[in-house]
Amino acid sequence: MPQWTPVCAFDDIDDEDVRRFDHAGKTFAIYRYDDKVYASDGLCTHEQVHLCDGLVQAHVIECPKHNGRFDIRDGRPLGAPVCVALKTYPAKVEGGEILIDVA
């Protein structure tokens, strides 16, 4: 059963940007690209660096530490040094607010 959790207003995240969201002892990364929203675990699978400090270009987040890249749509790694995918979560916009399913 989905557990939709409010994150922030849709307009609080610029296009091609990422925001950190902490909930229930876990860190998430919330992305906006082309007026769509995506969500993943907030730490790089390579060295547990916060992805909110990374760079978003198109559907790619680049880790700020070693430049590992992930596809924000499905979490798959796109090149060294990352080789383990990010866990992703359903995300949507309702009433101008971003919600993610943390279940």
Rank of each mutant, 00 (worst) to 15 (best):
V102W: 09
V56E: 13
E16V: 07
D22M: 05
C44S: 05
D34A: 15
D41W: 00
L55M: 12
R19M: 10
C44Q: 03
L99M: 09
R19G: 00
Y31K: 02
K65P: 00
I13Y: 11
R76F: 09
L86R: 06
F21W: 12
A58I: 00
G95L: 08
D22Y: 04
E16Q: 15
K65M: 10
A91W: 02
D11W: 10
D17C: 14
W4D: 10
A80C: 06
G25A: 04
G25E: 03
P6W: 12
I100V: 03
F28S: 08
P77H: 14
V84S: 11
H66G: 02
V93M: 01
I30S: 07
T88S: 00
V56N: 15
S40E: 07
H59G: 00
R32A: 00
L55A: 10
D41R: 01
D17H: 14
D14G: 15
D34E: 13
A91S: 00
T88N: 01
Q48L: 01
G68E: 09
V102E: 11
D34K: 11
F70M: 09
D17K: 13
P81F: 09
E47R: 02
G79P: 02
D17F: 13
H23W: 13
C83M: 11
V84F: 11
V93D: 02
D74G: 03
D15G: 02
T27C: 13
D53N: 11
C52Q: 06
A80Y: 11
C52K: 10
L55N: 14
D11K: 15
H66Q: 08
E94H: 08
K87E: 10
V84C: 09
F10C: 10
F70P: 04
E94G: 02
L99F: 15
D14P: 09
G75Q: 09
T5H: 12
Q57V: 07
A29H: 09
Q3L: 12
P81H: 08
L43G: 03
G79Y: 02
P6E: 15
A85I: 00
N67E: 11
Y33V: 12
I30K: 06
R69F: 01
Y38H: 14
T5V: 14
H66N: 09
V93Q: 01
V37E: 00
G54V: 01
F21I: 05
I98H: 10
I100P: 01
D12V: 15
D14V: 10
L55H: 13
L43H: 05
Y38S: 09
D71E: 06
P81R: 07
R20E: 13
D17N: 15
Y31Q: 03
C63Y: 14
G96D: 07
G79R: 03
C63V: 04
Y31C: 04
Q57C: 05
I13G: 06
H50K: 11
R73F: 00
V7Y: 08
A9G: 14
V37L: 06
D53A: 12
F21A: 08
F70K: 02
G54D: 08
K36M: 06
